[in-house]
Design a binder for these strands. Structure first.
Length: 419
DNA sequence: TCTGGGGTCCTAGGACCC
DNA sequence: TCTGGGGTCCTAGGACCC
């Protein structure tokens, strides 16, 4: 058996933990740059606010219904997520942290009443962190997802749903639209609908060959999982990433080279940090620029260029140097760039880097320098020490007008309680 | 004026090898 | 007159997830 524990409207719940005045009110959290709605409280959902809707289109509605609007605060959410995951790991021998707000638990051979265990999890996470969660229990990961959906949507389940027994499962799948199933996205749902398949029950009646032809082996696995045959194992170790991307939309569009240099240098350094964190080096780097695709009357330019590095690296200084080289290649004056990014790939373990006869970089020195830099920044806060290329007047920086404090990760932001 | 930021997996087709 | 059969690797594109 698997349990899927999912935090209810996680980002909103994090904000509410530290600001109880947000309870009972419609609350939304916006994406980076205060762009789109990425989390909604139930009250906000009830107002018809859609996931991913651009915030500027909702201004009037926000005012009319006194919707509380928060910029996203990933430091806070990341830390709260860790606290939730720590609590969850006490409830299962194995746990897969699937995303910032979800985890699968291995409940094979647990002799207890699983529904009761689910309720205990809910109460404990609530007590330890203040975050409300839903627990879905099923014999495969896909069925646990289905169960979680029931736990969340039907109020009578009170946040916990155990999906067991053939009859119970069949009845549920007959009511479930195929597009609701984990792994069936919009395109596949539309395709299935065209063939007259509306529900999950109808889907699992289709022959294997047909599913394979139209939805590849991915679709076939989903069918098996819905039938109760587990083929998606728990993934306990997060695999090292094969590509790492750091990109941002700018608070304001940028035409000059200088702010773009600052931005691209910052993204390259961020990639370096992520590479070091998973103890890897990257051999290939892509830099891209984008103009605002929504301004169709503006000239568009979306260049990108990929460079093979002489020797795979994880040093900020080297990554920045190459990223700026590439930036100069692709930049053209006269365009208003809205977004830029750096992607590193061809990632290898740091102890398996292929050297070069003509290497001019003092690698041990870079390594020591980066270690020191990471230690300082860990202790004194993000980017306390950084490369000069990253420093500037920052016109490109994110817009985050409604940012909450970093209650749990910054001493100066720690919460004050008046009694 | 204002529209996010990450990732993964699978397949088909072409290049190349013996 | 006759022109094989088996692989691997890489990339682009499309689907999906949160």
């Amino acid at each position: 058996m698997f349990a899927l524990v999912d935090c209810n409207n996680f980002y909103v719940s994090c904000e509410r933990v530290f600001n109880p005045a947000l309870n009972g009110r419609p609350v939304v959290v916006l994406s980076n740059n205060d762009g789109c709605v990425v989390a909604r409280s139930p009250e906000a959902k009830a107002l018809g606010i859609k996931m991913g809707e651009p915030a500027f289109k909702l201004d009037t509605l926000f005012r009319q219904y006194r919707v509380a609007v928060c910029s996203s605060n990933y430091q806070l959410y990341g830390d709260m997520s860790q606290r939730v995951m720590n609590t969850l790991s006490q409830f299962a021998p194995e746990i897969e942290v699937y995303s910032i707000d979800e985890a699968f638990l291995n409940w094979n051979g647990i002799p207890e009443d699983l529904e009761a265990l689910g309720r205990r999890i809910r109460a404990t996470v609530r007590k330890h962190t203040g975050i409300p969660v839903s627990v879905g229990i099923g014999s495969t990961k896909v069925l646990a997802k289905v169960a979680n959906d029931c736990a969340k949507k039907a109020p009578e389940n009170d946040g916990v749903f155990l999906l067991d027994g053939r009859e119970k499962t069949e009845k549920l799948l007959a009511r479930l639209e195929i597009g609701e199933i984990w792994g069936i996205g919009r395109k596949h749902a539309a395709l299935l609908n065209r063939y007259g398949i509306q529900t999950a029950a109808e889907f699992i009646r289709m022959p294997d060959g047909w599913i394979r032809k139209h939805l590849t082996v991915v679709g076939l696995r989903i069918k098996e999982e819905l039938l109760g045959i587990s083929c998606l194992p728990l993934e306990l170790m997060a695999p090292t990433k094969k590509a790492i991307c750091t990109s941002r939309s700018f608070g304001e569009s940028q035409s000059e080279l200088e702010p773009l240099r600052e931005a691209v240098a910052t993204f390259a350094a961020q990639c370096g940090y992520k590479l070091r964190k998973q103890r890897t080096c990257a051999g290939v780097m892509t830099v891209f620029l984008q103009t605002n695709r929504f301004n169709s009357d503006e000239p568009q330019h979306n260049p990108h260029y990929t460079m093979v590095l002489p020797v795979a690296t994880q040093s900020d200084l080297e990554l920045i140097r190459y990223a700026l080289e590439v930036l100069h290649k692709i930049y053209r004056p006269g365009y208003r760039y809205k977004k830029a990014g750096v992607i590193v790939s061809a990632i290898v373990p740091e102890e398996q880097v292929q050297g070069s006869l003509f290497d001019t970089v003092d690698r041990p020195k870079h390594r020591a320098l980066m270690q020191t830099l990471d230690r300082i920044n860990l202790r004194y806060g993000l980017a306390t020490v950084k490369a000069a290329a990253q420093v500037g007047d920052s016109g490109w920086k994110l817009r985050r007008e409604k940012l909450s404090p970093c209650y749990t990760t910054r001493w100066s932001d720690i919460i004050t309680v008046k009694a």
